[in-house]
């Protein structure tokens, strides 16, 4: 699919009839989208009680991801901004209900209705300002706040993402945490440039350990696994300003917070110990 479609044009323009058709018939693409959706569903960890669940598919496109949901026996509602992609979904007679909408405008969905949400290769689009009146921060905020609202307590949301760099990881995850989610970024096949995949893993109203990534190499030491054991919620009742002001001090708390941020992005960070942020002795 080339690199970074979101750098080319707004989604509803980029995914025109032609691109939408090619996207959906390219067997390599089908395979990749399908396997990433399977992984996202695994991370959702839905109760295996045999009762179909109701899921949201954000940026559902032509339905490649939704079809995986259907195959796993669940109902879904899909949202996408590109009419051409939705047209193909109709041609393919997907089972889910489709909505034409912009996630950056927030989701008009009622409180506590959905058992989970996925978004495959889609939310990085929100980092762009495609219209003069677009503000990525506000759009991400509107999106995550409304998403948080429409999920049941304990539900998870998993977004496979292609972040460009750490700033973008932060741009994506920080509004999610501020909306009340806990979670972080799970990086599968970290050391393989080809297979490496990132998932923004979010939990609504509860704290659970960050799932272990797939394809970790043997020589990943303990600090690596530690990275994936703890997640923290940013305390949203704490005024954001105050958190920022602490930056000037750079004490132990600041270091711990920075390390936490890096963990959320999926970086390898040594565990916090009693030595963290301690003043070094002057040896000479």
């Amino acid at each position: 699919m080339g690199s970074r479609p979101e750098a080319v044009a707004p989604p509803e323009i980029f995914y025109d009839d032609d691109t939408a058709r090619k996207y959906t018939s390219n067997s390599r693409n089908i395979q990749i989208q399908t396997s990433m959706t399977e992984r996202a569903l695994e991370l959702l960890n839905l109760p295996k009680d045999g009762v179909p669940k109701l899921l949201l598919d954000i940026g559902c496109g032509s339905g490649l991801s939704g079809e995986v949901i259907t195959e796993s026996g669940h109902h879904w509602v899909g949202l996408d901004i590109a009419p051409s992609m939705l047209d193909i979904a109709l041609d393919r007679e997907v089972e889910g209900d489709l909505l034409l909408g912009d996630m950056g405008q927030g989701l008009g969905l009622r409180f506590g209705m959905f058992d989970g949400a996925i978004g495959i290769s889609t939310i990085q689009w929100l980092c762009n300002a495609d219209k003069s009146f677009h503000n990525p921060h506000l759009r991400l905020k509107a999106f995550f706040t409304s998403l948080y609202k429409c999920l049941t307590n304990g539900a998870r949301a998993v977004f496979q993402v292609y972040p460009e760099n750490d700033d973008q990881r932060e741009l994506l995850s920080s509004p999610a945490m501020k909306a009340g989610f806990s979670g972080g970024i799970v990086v599968d096949y970290k050391d393989s440039p080809k297979k490496r995949k990132e998932y923004l893993f979010l939990v609504c109203g509860q704290e659970v350990p960050l799932p272990l990534p797939e394809g970790r190499t043997e020589d990943n030491d303990d600090s690596g696994s530690e990275t994936n054991k703890t997640v923290h919620v940013l305390d949203r009742r704490r005024p954001w300003k105050i958190q920022k002001n602490n930056k000037s001090e750079k004490g132990r708390e600041w270091i711990k917070r920075k390390k936490e941020q890096m963990r959320r992005r999926g970086d390898d960070v040594p565990p916090d110990t009693k030595y963290t942020g301690r003043k070094r002795k002057n040896h000479f």
Binding site: H75, L98, G106, G108, L109, F114
Partner: peptide, 20 residues
């Protein structure tokens, strides 16, 4: 669109208090 979805949808227009 099924009524399942209709029952979850509300109007998201700025300033609207009860869009359902």
């Amino acid at each position: 669109m099924r009524l399942l979805t209709h029952n979850m949808l509300s109007s998201n227009i700025k300033g609207v208090v009860n869009g359902f």
